[in-house]
């Protein structure tokens, strides 16, 4: 059960080996979280994330494998995760996405479809399944990793950004549909995060690290904020950014 500060006792992470997810799990397991279900693609990285969770204080950390290209299996993956938790699930973190490599991918129709599938279609299908299960539980929280890249889509990563834009909008709509059900959906919009996904890329202004994003998520869970920005200043910057004329937006660095 979640406590008065939203601290969960059990969590499922879809995309459990991502740097941000791991940083969040370390914090949760250090507080109240005893069950950590880690789902993802790479068994080796997942088992090292699981070990990390156990070291941080979890007592059960099963691993579930899935491929986010396989939209038809999203539902099944979600039910496998809930089964692996062996009880009620207080928090589900959705940290699935593929940045792609803009230079080569943006001219490839198949890769474009992949980026949208992994970044939007699969997570949206999974979220629908998660929402149904949590609704029945009568309580629970869903944290969706979005990005400022989806707040205003830009030239440098428009396939990734538009998938995040879709996911962000979907999640906020889902949050509304779950009002009064005891289930909360929160959207996290980090800026440029220095992680393995962005390795080799030039950091955009207001870049941040996975630890900082994890701190913002933990605080967001405590306050039930609908949207969590990291760093927090981006909330105000993007109030302006999203309204700039395209001609100016185009020239901004990042």
């Amino acid at each position: 059960m979640n406590d008065a500060f939203g601290r969960p006792q059990s969590v499922i992470v879809l995309g459990g080996s991502s740097d941000i997810a791991r940083a969040v799990v370390r914090r949760l397991a250090g507080a109240r979280c005893k069950t950590v279900v880690l789902a993802g693609r790479d068994p080796e990285r997942l088992s090292s994330a699981a070990k990390e969770a156990l070291d941080a204080g979890a007592s059960l950390a099963p691993v579930v494998l899935f491929d986010a290209h396989d939209v038809a299996q999203a539902d099944l993956t979600v039910s496998n995760c809930f089964a692996a938790a062996e009880g009620p699930v207080d928090l589900v973190i959705v940290a699935v996405g593929d940045l792609g490599s803009p230079d080569s991918d943006e001219r490839d129709p198949t890769r474009t479809a992949d980026l949208i599938t992994v970044g939007f279609t699969w997570p949206a299908s999974a979220l629908t399944a998660i929402a149904a299960t949590l609704r029945e539980q009568g309580h629970g929280r869903i944290v969706v990793l979005s990005s400022v890249a989806g707040v205003r889509v830009r030239r440098s990563n428009f396939a990734y950004g538009s998938a995040k834009a879709g996911l962000d909008g979907f999640s906020i709509g889902l949050a509304e549909s779950l009002r009064g059900s005891g289930v909360i959906v929160q959207v996290v919009r980090p800026g440029f995060v220095r992680t393995k996904m962005t390795e080799g890329l030039k950091p955009a202004p207001f870049s941040t690290g996975p630890e900082e994003v994890a701190d913002a998520i933990i605080r967001g869970i405590e306050t039930d904020a609908q949207v969590v920005w990291s760093p927090g200043l981006l909330r105000w910057i993007f109030m302006i950014m999203r309204n700039l004329p395209q001609s100016i937006w185009r020239k901004l660095p990042g």
Partner: peptide, 15 residues
């Protein structure tokens, strides 16, 4: 119904 205690933290839904 969505219920909480007097402190209004951690709501949950029940029949």
């Amino acid at each position: 119904r969505l219920l909480t205690g007097w402190g209004r933290t951690s709501p949950s839904r029940a029949a």
